[in-house]
Design a protein around this nucleic acid. Structure first.
Lengths: 159, 159
DNA sequence: GCTCCCGTACTCGGATAGGAGTTGTCCGAGTGCTGATGG
DNA sequence: CCATCAGCACTCGGACAACTCCTATCCGAGTACGGGAGC
C-alpha cells in the first residue's frame, strides 16, 4: 500500500498558497520550481484539486491556482480524496461467496463479512483523523519562519 | 491507494484456519478451492505470513499451513503488515528542502514537516485500530453458522 | 492623442507514452505414504 | 507373516512472465497584455 506522491506535492502546494494568501493566482511553473517538481505532472495533479473544489484555476497569461476556500475549511481528507479517489483502500471482493459458499442462499450474505467490517472500521479511523485536520491547522503548527521564507522566495522570483 | 488483494485472501484463510482449529495443517490447494483463488499465488501470499510468524508451514504430502499462535494473539495489523510491508503509506520525500528551501542550513529541517506529522498521525490511528482487533475477535463476531459451514465443507472434501 | 484591433506569449486542460509494482504462473527441493520384495 | 526399501504422489518454496496503475510528457484551447494602425 502506498499513497501517490501527488498527495505530498499538492499538500505542499496548498500550504504555499495558504501562506501567500494573495488574490492573484500562482502558476504551476512557479509552484513546480519551488519544489523542483515536473511542472506538467504537477499541473495534472492540481487539476484534480480543482475538480474537487479545493483549488480554483484561472486560465490566461496571468493565470494559475488559488485556494477556493479559506484554509480553515480545507481538510487533509479532502486533498487526499481528491488525489487518491473516493474508493476505500480495502476492497471486499466477496470471496466468501465463492467456492465453499457458492451454494448458499443469497440472503445469508446480506450482512457484510467481519473482515470488511474490521477493515472499514480502521479505515474510518484514518479518514476521521484526516478530516479533523485542516490546512489552517497545519499553517499554524508550522514554524513562522517557513511561512516567511516562502513569501520572501515568491517575492524574489516575482510572485 | 489500494491494499493488495492478498490481504483479503489471507485474512479469510486465517479465519478458516481458526475455525477448523485442527492440529493437522491445511494445504494451499484446499484453501484456494474454498475461495476459488489461484493456488500458486495464494501460496506465495501465505508464505509471507509464515515469514512473519503468523502461520506455520509443514512440507510433505500431508503438509500445509496452520496458525502459529492462538487467534487471540494474532492481530489484523500483523497480517496487513505481513502482506503490505512495514513501510508507511505516506512517504515524505522532503521536497521542502528542494528548490526554494535548498539554500537553507540543514538544521532548519531537523524537525519533520507538518505534513508528514499530520499524515503519520492519521496512519497511526489506522494502525492502532488494526492492532486492537484480533483474529479471535473476528471469529466471535462472525455468525456461528459461518464457522459450522466452513467445518462441514472441509469434512466433505476430506479436510 | 485616443480608441480599436490583431499578434503574441503565457496559462490551464486533456490526450498520449514509459516504468515500477502487483498479479499470476512455473518448476525444483523436500517429505511421508504405499506397496512390493526378501527373509 | 514381518521388516526393509525403493518409488511416488503431494507439499511448500522461490525464480520467472503478464498486466495494471502510477509517473511523466506533449500538444491544443483559451486569455490578457502590448504594440501598431486608424480616426
Amino acid at each position: 500500500m502506498r499513497l501517490s506522491e501527488g498527495v505530498e506535492w499538492t499538500l505542499h502546494c496548498c500550504l504555499t498558497l495558504g501562506w501567500l494568501d494573495s488574490d492573484k493566482p500562482v502558476s504551476t511553473a512557479k509552484l513546480a520550481a519551488t519544489f523542483e517538481l515536473p511542472p506538467a505532472y504537477l499541473n495534472k495533479r492540481l487539476q484534480a484539486l480543482v475538480r474537487s473544489g479545493i483549488l480554483a484555476s484561472t486560465p490566461g497569461v496571468h493565470g494559475g491556482f488559488r485556494l477556493a476556500r479559506p484554509p480553515e475549511k480545507i481538510t487533509l481528507m479532502e486533498v487526499v480524496a481528491a488525489i487518491e479517489g473516493p474508493e476505500n483502500a480495502f476492497r471486499c471482493t466477496e470471496i466468501r461467496q465463492r467456492g465453499a459458499g457458492a451454494e448458499r442462499p443469497a440472503h445469508e450474505y446480506k450482512r457484510q463479512c467481519v473482515i470488511t467490517t474490521a477493515m472499514r472500521k480502521a479505515e474510518l479511523a484514518w479518514r476521521r483523523e484526516l478530516a479533523s485536520q485542516t490546512l489552517a491547522d497545519m499553517m499554524a503548527t508550522a514554524p513562522q519562519a517557513a511561512a516567511e521564507r516562502t513569501r520572501n522566495w515568491f517575492e524574489r522570483v516575482g510572485g
